[in-house]
């Protein structure tokens, strides 16, 4: 009896230890990120720098500083990294990679203007320096969210264009992004050329088709806009916003019936779609179908609207005489 109790206790303890051991093993055993350079490595690079300083070869000395800068960078000591890149560049001002890496270090320190200056110098020295473009694009994308400066946006559009040239397999997405930025800048012609290029590179690029349709619509070429939207909708028949825009274009063409059908399809796919509701109500009102217009207006009251849509709703309300 006593032996049995001791045995059970022993087994329970063993299983508990096993369970704790397994819990410790539950963390991923393979990290996707490469391990940081061990701090001790820097000593080796200090030695290399010391050796290079003792020699006469300025380029070798610059290379030693650059390499140690990279180690500092890898250890996230960006200030030391910048100091070494400075030393390297003082010895060899043609080191595009040192400019690039210094730019990256400045970006990590949130000194964005300095980062952009260094990226520009790196690209000036090496116009096909893809990584410099990629990192500058990443920084510009981040900056233009809070600082929609025209110069920055134009730079971003140009960089997308350069990346599309440098990476032929990614031409379509980069051209598409370039088109979006150019459209945002109001350069419709250049934006359309960018979307054209994106569609040439990838004929099924539905986003480029849609955005090009908007450009056609804005410039008054309603037939071209419809053609692009039709093509986009053949590929993406569940895209509610494409139906909505097609409805607006058909309404502008005077085809109220088709417009109402398109707005209806958009609402079928996305029932809480205030723009489609307002557009359909306005079209109904123009057709004299006030009952249907008021029904849509009433549905709008249940939706959260931003200030622009609130104004559109009020304009609609005044037009169809709804209460409110």
């Amino acid at each position: 009896m006593k032996r049995s109790v001791v045995g059970q206790t022993w087994r329970c303890t063993a299983f508990t230890i096993l369970a704790i051991f397994l819990t410790a093993c539950s963390e991923p055993l393979v990290e996707p990120r490469a391990p940081r350079t061990p701090t001790a490595v820097i000593d080796r690079y200090n030695a290399i720098v010391a050796t290079a300083e003792a020699g006469e070869d300025l380029l070798a000395r610059a290379r030693a500083y650059y390499d140690r800068g990279n180690i500092w960078f890898d250890q996230q000591n960006y200030t030391e990294a910048i100091a070494d890149y400075n030393r390297a560049l003082a010895l060899d001002p043609s080191m595009s990679r040192a400019f690039h890496n210094r730019g990256l270090a400045y970006a990590m320190l949130k000194e964005y203007d300095a980062a952009l200056r260094d990226y520009a110098l790196a690209i000036h020295l090496d116009p096909d320096y893809r990584r410099a473009y990629e990192n500058r694009v990443r920084l510009l994308e981040e900056l233009t969210v809070s600082r929609p400066d025209e110069t920055l946006l134009q730079q971003l559009a140009d960089d997308y264009g350069s990346l599309a040239r440098l990476i032929p397999t990614a031409e379509a997405p980069y051209r598409y992004r370039q088109g979006l930025i150019l459209a945002r800048l109001g350069d419709r012609t250049a934006a359309r050329e960018a979307f054209d290029a994106a569609i040439r590179a990838q004929p099924h690029h539905v986003d480029a088709l849609y955005e090009r349709a908007l450009l056609h619509y804005a410039s008054g070429d309603l037939d071209a806009a419809l053609a692009d939207l039709d093509a986009a909708l053949r590929l993406s028949p569940r895209a509610a916003n494409a139906y909505y825009v097609r409805g607006l274009i058909r309404r502008a063409q005077g085809d109220a019936r088709s417009a109402i059908a398109d707005f209806g399809q958009a609402l079928l796919l996305q029932p809480a779609y205030p723009e489609a509701l307002i557009a359909r109500a306005a079209t109904y009102a123009e057709q004299g179908n006030m009952t249907a217009a008021r029904a849509d207006l009433q549905r709008l009251d249940d939706l959260q609207l931003d200030p622009t849509l609130q104004q559109a709703r009020e304009a609609l309300r005044l037009r169809i005489g709804g209460s409110g």
């Binding site: 619509y217 804005a218 825009v245 723009e275 307002i278 104004q311 559109a312």
Partner: peptide, 13 residues
């Protein structure tokens, strides 16, 4: 204001 003109302005700038 036309409600659809507001929608167009919102969409196309």
């Amino acid at each position: 204001l036309s409600p659809t003109a507001i929608l167009e302005a919102r969409l196309l700038g």
